[in-house]
């Protein structure tokens, strides 16, 4: 379970580094983020939600049955879009209204 960071998209804002509950993210010297301890990622997606530039994508480790799909989020007012992209590039978007409780 871990994240992949796209160096091209990373704007070096540093917000993700502040929120990681394991303090696993560090600056690479040019201010861009890299994950220093990938095996220590809990998979909470805090950093994914913090990134406004779609630079951080979350995936399942192969040892958990991951098949290369990635997950990122986009916030729009009260809406949180969760975008899952499979290895062929096919997207599924699940939108959650943050002002409403879960059904379950």
């Amino acid at each position: 379970m871990s994240i992949a960071i796209d160096r091209e998209k990373c704007t070096a804002c540093g917000l993700c580094r502040q929120v990681c509950p394991g303090s696993l993210l560090y600056s690479d010297g040019q201010g861009k983020t890299f994950i220093k301890y990938p095996k220590d990622c809990w998979g909470c997606t805090s950093c994914v939600k913090e990134c406004h530039f779609k630079a951080i994508k979350y995936f399942l480790g192969a040892d958990m049955g991951g098949k290369g799909s990635t997950l990122y989020t986009k916030e729009e007012g009260n809406l949180m879009h969760w975008i899952i992209v499979d290895f062929e590039g096919k997207e599924k978007i699940i939108t959650i209204d943050k002002s409403k409780a879960n059904a379950y």
Partner: peptide, 13 residues
């Protein structure tokens, strides 16, 4: 998951 996903656990690792 003792390998790569060792921290994919229930409680906060």
């Amino acid at each position: 998951n003792p390998g790569y996903s060792r921290h994919k656990m229930w409680y906060c690792p």
